[in-house]
Amino acid sequence: MSRLSLLFASLAFSPNTYSDEQNIWKQIREGISGYSAVNSQESEILIQASGTQWLTIRNELIAGTGAWLLALTVLALAVFYLIRGRVKLTEPPSGEMIERWSKSERWLHFYTASLFILLAITGLSLLYGRSFLISWLGHDSFSQYADIAKIVHNYAGPLFSVGLVMMGMIWFQDNLFDKTDITWFKQYGGMIGNQHPSAGRMNAGEKVWFWLLMTAGVLVSITGMNLDFPNLGQYRLIMQISHIIHSVSAFLLIIGALGHIYIGTIGTEGALRGMITGKVDKSWAKQHHDLWYQQINKEKQNFLKPSGNSAKYGSKIQ
């Protein structure tokens, strides 16, 4: 408390005179501003203190930890695949298909996913290209590639954000947590062991991924938009903080996406086909999303029965 009020006091009464000569040098190192006839961005500041700190955070903390985390994630998924193998259908396919994803949902999914992959590749190229690509491509070719990567990243970003917001709107309801999710977590989603925990349209794992997208994804979008427009006169500190939040969130998303892609492709039989064609087998639906299966079954029955919920579908029957 007292520290906070001290901070505010020093902000409010930020003194303009420093009688003590040594004090001036200290203040200059801490980033005090003066007057400059040159009218460029932050020209009135002699030394910005945060620049080298940001450099260390980017080059060492983010790039270093990020590389380890990515490598460990890939390794963990590979080991998991070797031990557990593919989650197969326990019942033979019934041949009866159920619609799981509408056409617009599928378009939105692959629109956002492809932009995400593009953003991840171009973003990581800017961060790691110097360490990994220059020795291979040479300075000239890498610079040409990085120039394109930067432009692609700058434009794909806002397009990705549009997809993200639309996902948030159409899948919000399906991703609210409920009691079944607790059991789902306790049984590791059926990925370890042979249980089939109950799940509605989205299982708890999908919900976690959804909410990671809605938090880290939103942070990536907001900070990315800020980095996209460096011409608005934002202080360097704002850009540095934006960059740190942007890269940390991006790493969380990339790690989440690796898991998501694993489960959706080689990890689970029938999942990818569901997102491509929109339809899943009845056996698949029963095994992975039993509550959702029961619900659509009930709706279908109500729909067919003249009594029941027919009022709801009245207009359609006419």
């Binding site: 910005q48 620049g51 940001w54 120039d147 930067k150 427009f229 460096p230 011409n231 608005l232 540095q240």
Partner: peptide
């Protein structure tokens, strides 16, 4: 010829030395 105008040097430099002419859309 190699510079891609990312602005990182301006964020890192203690003295605010790197400068950029504006070039194209998007505050590029």
């Amino acid at each position: 010829d190699l510079c891609i105008g990312c602005g990182y040097c301006f964020y890192a430099c203690p003295f605010g030395a790197p400068q950029f002419p504006q070039d194209g859309a998007f505050g590029n």
